[in-house]
Amino acid sequence: MTLCIGVIGTGMIGRDHTRRIQNVIAGAEVTALSDVNRDSARAVQADLAPTAEIFDDGRALIASDLVGAILVCSWGGTHEEYVLAAIEASKPVFCEKPLATTAEGARRIVEAEAKHGTRLVQVGFMRRYDAGYRMLKRAIEEETGAPLMVHAAHRNPAVPEQYVTPMAIHDTLIHEIDVLRWLLDDDYVSAQVVFPRRSPHAHAALADPQIVLLETAKGVRIDVEVFVNCRYGYDIQCEVVGEEGLARLPDPMSVAVRRNAQARNPVLTDWKDRFVESYDIELADFVAAAKCGTASGPSAWDGYVAAVTSDACVKAQETGAVEPIELPTRPALYD
């Protein structure tokens, strides 16, 4: 059986996911496209999905009999509406982060899915599918003993002028928020943000770098350096200190070169290159579950927890205080 997928949002990630479905993943086909910029949808149709029908509206795409599952890759403000519509139509939906732009919006999605009674939503937290993070999780479970501390870093070479201080949480740290919670099998209880000396490459509306301090329910202390103008490359680091040992996320595989009296390893500069295989695996996971009428991987609850945690971190940016992170009881659907 071929899963017929509709893609809402044909910008950079929507185009890339369309390519992935058409050319990389078996068992699925893009049969419908929608974008507020119809020319963008036409370009993706011409390049990647010539038989796909173009819809003027995402809701019409979701309702169409041409579509059995949906990818929501449009701008974040539309995610809640489209995910809720997919749940109402009983169609599996893959939603790129954020699940919603507010924690309240994410909560509404959780409530709708719990009322439906079947998992239909997968959130695009691709790091859970990264080979390095999976090896790190096994090491935590089998080698290091119970985690005590985590030291992590998320570094980008540069960001555009419109990138401002809260985006360091909502657009950048959001991936650490999800993957560290998954690594530790733990929830957060507080957040604090401190600001070192500002990099000269940061503009007036961006405090860069930042250090985010998180505490979990089990007492693990986490520090994450967010440095989005580090200049030298795209660099993701994570080190977990346990009762019996230490485990570190491996760097992406590369060829070490010795030449001209130097030994060097290349550093990636693009996040798409760093996690390209993770994107392939996460969408293959979505396709496999959607064929059975359900969803797998990061859930709507995970998206909601990330939204609540993000809001607390942004508040901590503003206050400088330790801000509590409080969650309601998790619905049984997500146990």
Rank of each mutant, 00 (worst) to 15 (best):
G6A: 02
Q22F: 00
V24Q: 02
A26H: 12
R38N: 06
A43R: 05
A49C: 04
A49T: 02
T51K: 07
I54W: 01
F55I: 00
G58S: 00
V67I: 00
I70Y: 05
L71M: 10
V72A: 06
T78W: 10
A85N: 01
I87N: 05
K91C: 13
K97E: 07
T102E: 14
I109S: 14
E113F: 09
K115Q: 11
R119G: 14
L120Y: 07
F125V: 00
D130H: 08
A131D: 05
I140Q: 08
T144K: 07
V159R: 08
A168K: 10
L173R: 04
I174A: 12
E176C: 12
D178A: 02
L184H: 06
D187P: 07
A191D: 01
V193P: 00
P196F: 03
P196L: 04
R198W: 01
S199K: 04
A204T: 09
I211M: 04
E215Q: 13
A217Y: 03
K218N: 13
D223K: 13
E225S: 11
V226R: 01
Q237G: 11
C238S: 06
V240Y: 11
G242S: 14
G242K: 08
E243M: 13
E244M: 13
G245W: 11
A247W: 07
L249R: 09
L249F: 12
L249K: 11
V257P: 09
W271P: 12
S278L: 10
E282A: 11
A284I: 00
A289Y: 06
A290V: 00
K291C: 05
T294H: 13
G303I: 03
G303L: 05
A306I: 01
A306T: 05
K315E: 15
I325W: 13
